[in-house]
Simulated assay, not measured.
Amino acid sequence: MKKILALGTMALATAALAQPRISAQSIIVNPTPTDLSVRVWTDKDPSGQSTPNYAIGERIRLFVTTNQDAYVYLFNVGVNGEIDQILPNRYSGDNNLVRAGETRQFPRANNPQYSLDVAGPAGVNRVLALASRTPLNLDQISQFRAEQTNQGFATVTVRGSENLAQALSIVVTPIPQNTWTTDTASYNVVAPQAPARTGSITVNTNVPGATVYINDREVGDSGSTFPNLAAGTYRVRISAPGYTDINQTVTVRAGVTVNVNVTLQAQRATLTIRSNVNGARVFVNGQEQGVIRNGALTLTLNRDDYQIVLVAPGYAAGVSQVQVVNGGTITVNLNRLQ
């Protein structure tokens, strides 16, 4: 398996007029006008203009397109000066002739013979694509050696961006100067992130400020996320005054937030309303609930505060405020009108 080492910026040497030169972006460019163009990019940045991050060990795919039939040469330049030649290589199907308008992927999706794996050191790295209408002789840059372990890829015999630039300048000098061109793509190698070892629980309820307990320990209010929980099973209890507690068993996995969404049910209690007037109509918070019969009316209510109003013909209305907690009895007697 071929690994791409971290690529470094190209620091290429300048040359005489009409010879390869170096742009402000430190890439080898052709000073002679040409209608040949090449574009290279990575799988994380189709525009080729950004510098996406790749973790060490992550696989990368490269893409190349040309506007004319051209032979394409791909190089990776490492931060430490190490150079890898991606193309040409000897793996099946990976010849370096790219047809006009064709987009080539390296490695090809249907070619499992190799992969391109990002390696260190960390830093901003660069891929150089050189396209030529005619094949180039790279003997002074790289060689395919039968004795090497990875025989599908050439061994690059130069090291460092300056040496590569000088060698490429010599390679392209014999050919017509309007028959080649270059492009580069950058990406940033970063250290792989350590795998997450903890997870989180988020609790949401219909009662704002309900108290949350995890393994019988109060941890905060509903509407919150409780992080840094080791993977495992937890008992979650949500409690609020006047509501029935809800208990759930939750399994937490590393790197995952578990959502606990519950609806608390209001606790109910029995309230008996006594009065001296049978047939009096009973209103609870403005809603009629029944009439007094045999001197009383019994209601089942949520635990809350209520206004109780009794009305009857010929009597002044009776009003009482009551807090229903554990149930009980209240008396609302009515006085006759004068």
Rank of each mutant, 00 (worst) to 15 (best):
Q321S: 14
V29N: 12
E147F: 10
N30V: 08
T202Q: 11
V309Y: 03
G81C: 07
D43S: 08
P52E: 10
A129C: 10
T66D: 09
E82P: 05
A317V: 01
V118E: 07
G209P: 09
A70T: 05
T66R: 00
D245H: 10
R303P: 04
A122F: 06
R217C: 03
A13E: 15
T9N: 14
Y54D: 02
F144L: 11
V212F: 00
L310T: 00
L136S: 04
V258L: 10
P313T: 00
L74Q: 03
L12D: 05
P227K: 14
V40P: 01
A24C: 06
I238S: 01
L337Q: 04
R336H: 02
A146W: 04
N76Y: 00
L128Q: 06
V203C: 06
T155K: 14
S92L: 13
N125C: 13
T14S: 14
N285T: 08
A240V: 03
T249Q: 14
R336T: 04
T202G: 07
A191N: 09
P88S: 09
P195Y: 01
F153D: 02
N188P: 06
A165G: 15
N276I: 03
P88R: 00
Q166K: 13
Q148V: 08
Y54Q: 06
A240P: 05
P31R: 00
I86A: 11
T42G: 05
A210E: 03
V322N: 13
I238Q: 02
S200I: 04
Q148D: 10
D117A: 15
P192A: 09
G48P: 12
V98G: 08
L12K: 06
Q193T: 11
N285C: 13
T184C: 08
A11E: 13
Y114L: 14
Q265N: 15
N178I: 04
R61Q: 12
I56Y: 12
S23I: 15
V40L: 03
D221A: 13
V291P: 07
T149E: 11
I27R: 14
L301W: 02
R293H: 11
Q113D: 15
T270H: 09
V203Y: 00
N53G: 05
I86P: 07
S222T: 15
F153G: 04
G327F: 00
V203R: 05
Q85C: 13
R303C: 12
A70V: 02
N285F: 10
L97A: 09
V38E: 01
R133C: 03
P33C: 03
G152C: 06
P33E: 00
T331F: 01
A129W: 14
L12H: 01
